[in-house]
Design a protein around this nucleic acid. Structure first.
Lengths: 135, 135
DNA sequence: TTTTCACTTGAACATATGTGCAAGTGTCGC
DNA sequence: GCGACACTTGCACATATGTTCAAGTGAAAA
């Protein structure tokens, strides 16, 4: 039997597709890792909701917990993840600790994501690609 | 003991922060869910690398497998996740099946993410927020 | 200083998710 | 049709991640 573990050479001739960009490193592996972690941090409904709250303005943990109907602990843990990816900033303000979106870039990310999710965008549709199952 | 399960009322007075945006639904829950799934799909180095490959132009599974030094099966599984979030399109082309980024929006997402990850961006830095640990 | 409030952190648990192999499906050429 | 090629899918396994409670920390009021 031909084992499937041959992760290397394809038996199809590459040039038949007119593509020469095979086997190129393309991007920094560390950058991929970092970008992925950032996306994963946003990629949880509870945390994305938190970000969308903060997009309205800075808030302290207690306020966030009240908004989300969750415990301080739960909110704090979520904030920790977001902060570890530098998506939010924190500062003390008297007894409280306030959080805010890190920068405008994060703000745009959040809004773009939600916009993209609310209205289902159609592709340019000028090729014979299919979005769903092909025969 | 005051149990921590009181997920509701904060004991801090909200108005002392001058914020009135507490306890508002803010966004559609379904949109949050969808946006999160999209981010999670991108938020894996292997899949993000795949997307960055496809940003160079459409490719068939075998080519992608060769580029990534992985088995067809593995690549196919990753493509399935990306496709389930409509990030990529597929079409038959003779014996092969070609994949491509779904639209320009996905292209920008990929490039922005990688750009954001390569050069560490500094925040606007006009407030007394702290990025790292506070005292 | 002691107490209280506001929050953080550690650890245990359940769930979700990526990976790899093996079997299945669909297309092309003979 | 039959076999080979190009993928896809189901399943089992390991790992990662979210959630929760309980204990810990730090600032501020008493």
């Amino acid at each position: 039997m031909t084992s499937e573990r041959d992760k290397v050479e394809p038996s199809c001739t590459v040039d038949e597709h007119g593509v020469e960009s095979v086997r190129r490193p393309l991007v920094n592996e560390a950058a991929l890792e970092r970008a992925s972690r950032l996306f994963r941090a946003i990629g949880e409904p509870s945390r994305l909701r938190l970000l969308s709250r903060l997009a309205q303005g800075e808030m302290c943990v207690t306020e966030l917990a009240a908004s989300e109907q969750e415990s301080l602990s739960t909110i704090s843990q979520r904030l920790r993840v977001l902060r570890s990816e530098n998506l939010i900033l924190r500062r003390r303000r008297g007894k409280h600790i306030n959080y805010a979106l890190a920068d405008q870039h994060v703000m745009e990310l959040v809004f773009n994501a939600l916009a993209h999710a609310t209205e289902r965008p159609a592709s340019s549709g000028h090729s014979n690609f299919e979005k769903e199952n092909l025969p």
